[in-house]
Design a protein around this nucleic acid. Sequence first.
DNA 1: CTTTGACCTGTGAGTAGCTCACAGGTTTTA
DNA 2: TAAAACCTGTGAGCTACTCACAGGTCAAAG
Lengths: 143, 143
Amino acid sequence: MKVKELAMGAEVNPDTVRFYTREGLLKPTRNPDNNYQQYDAEDLRRLRFARKARQLGFSLPEIRQILEQADDHHSPCPMVRDVFQQRLTEVEREIAELQQLRKRMTAALSAWQAMPDGSPDGHTICRLIEHWDEAAPDKGKKE
Amino acid sequence: MKVKELAMGAEVNPDTVRFYTREGLLKPTRNPDNNYQQYDAEDLRRLRFARKARQLGFSLPEIRQILEQADDHHSPCPMVRDVFQQRLTEVEREIAELQQLRKRMTAALSAWQAMPDGSPDGHTICRLIEHWDEAAPDKGKKE
DNA sequence: CTTTGACCTGTGAGTAGCTCACAGGTTTTA
DNA sequence: TAAAACCTGTGAGCTACTCACAGGTCAAAG
């Protein structure tokens, strides 16, 4: 298979195929006639695997590690479980953080309803922002 | 004020001060003796403003625009309200997306409880991932 | 058989918002 | 007076792609 064929087979951008190849996730051979990359069914499996793993939140280095373990005939599954658990924890942290942010934002919005716009006066730029955490006293210590 | 002093005043990394200066958010003068950047109270206000706006999810270009409007003696507040509303919408979309992801992840995790690890056999790399969306039939079409 | 268009190649830049590293100049402290 | 701490600008690194570029290759149409 050539780049575009592989890309279509996994429904990704051909540039992504090239990128993954550069990154060492795919290891095509070469057609000695024209120097084109030659991918096979195994590469298609790897690419599809990589895409699914990405959707599950694995990073490219993690995916590369998993593929390398599989290449060495070790089961990558224990590692997959492990990394996956960590990712889940992190996703939950991100959700909590965003919900916190949304809370602060809606609080700020409703506090702003009552506030006039005002022009910059050399001391303040826009009161809405400069005083938003007083209006929404939920301390947003990020991270 | 010099870079580090301003940075401490707003509790940011000195490199962030330099970066914001490069980006045109801060406009220090120069000390002709040694060519050092000279910041004043106005810059401190701008920097603090920028940091608060970042916490609220404004991008640097947006913040620059707001500051420029204020420099022109126009009230930036209507724009602030507008961009802010958009950001809130986006934050809510991000939350929904992450919750969707978490749902898929927890579904996958519980499906994996029952599955053995297995070694790569030339057809599969790690069943956990390759079959995860069959186990968790919630189609995750990522936008 | 030649042209045209679609494909291939590698490389480098762009995305956001910093953060860090580097090499060299200045100021402060011991 | 010398070391430590700061300043300067510039450039790279982080993520996971995506796109642009210049030049080589190949299939079908004229």
